[in-house]
Simulated assay, not measured.
Amino acid sequence: MANFNGLLLLSLALLFALAGATQYKVGGSGDWTVPSDPNSMSYNQWAEKNRFRIGDSLLFVYPPDKDSVLQVDKLAYNHCSTSSYIAKFDDGNTVFTLNTSGPFYFISGVEKNCIRNESLIVVVMADRSTPSASHPPPPSPESLSPPSSMEVPPSPSPEVEVSTPPPPPPPPSGASMKLVSFVGLLGGGVGLLLFVL
């Protein structure tokens, strides 16, 4: 029984790890440095090939005595301004968690390195599981009815009934799809464990 419980816990830990956030090493396999080959893929080209989500993280690897990472705003990014930054990292093994949607701007803490394309823009996709401020929910029937102090014109006739069809259900969110996938994986893992034992 103890072996079964241990195996079950190990399977659950593996499934949670598969459903979690992703850590991306900046640039792929290389380190955070000035690109040595002008024909190689830039950091921004690398970023465009990935889909970053809230909760994912970036791993910057660099020699701490020679370089650093600055999180900056768009203006500082465009001018390689190392004097104005949001956050500075210089530990040589920086993990930065992407905690909101939208763009994140990074440059080298060495201005001449930034000028030589050691810079990165990462755009984090919006979380579609929460309502967006740009698309407010439809008004409720109570909010459409006039206040009681106003006179309401009479209806055209009692035989005519105006009704609106209910709105279509919202498309499934990424979060619910992940949950369904996770539950399926969990069920498959438990089933496999029971089959093996």
Rank of each mutant, 00 (worst) to 15 (best):
Met1Ala: 15
Met1Ile: 11
Ala2Leu: 12
Asn3Met: 11
Asn5Ser: 12
Leu10Tyr: 09
Ala17Asp: 07
Ala21Phe: 06
Gly28Val: 08
Ser29Arg: 09
Pro35Cys: 05
Asn39Thr: 10
Ser40Cys: 00
Tyr43Arg: 04
Asn44Val: 01
Trp46Pro: 02
Trp46Thr: 02
Ala47Ile: 03
Glu48Asp: 13
Ile54Leu: 08
Asp56Phe: 00
Leu58Met: 13
Leu59Gly: 02
Leu59Glu: 01
Val61Met: 03
Pro64Gln: 03
Pro64Leu: 00
Lys66Met: 07
Asp67Gln: 12
Asp67Asn: 15
Gln71Asn: 14
His79Tyr: 13
Ser83Lys: 15
Ser84Lys: 12
Gly92Glu: 00
Thr94Met: 02
Thr94Arg: 00
Val95Ser: 10
Thr97Leu: 01
Phe104Glu: 04
Ser108Thr: 08
Val110Ser: 01
Glu111Cys: 03
Glu111Ser: 13
Ile115Leu: 14
Arg116Lys: 14
Ser119Lys: 15
Ala126Trp: 06
Arg128Trp: 03
Thr130His: 11
Pro137Gln: 10
Pro139Leu: 15
Pro141Glu: 09
Glu142Ile: 06
Glu142Asp: 10
Glu151Phe: 10
Glu151Lys: 14
Pro154Phe: 03
Pro154Tyr: 06
Pro156Gly: 07
Val160Ile: 15
Val162Glu: 10
Pro170Val: 07
Ser176Leu: 08
Met177Asp: 07
Ser181Leu: 14
Leu185Trp: 08
Phe195Thr: 08
Leu197His: 10
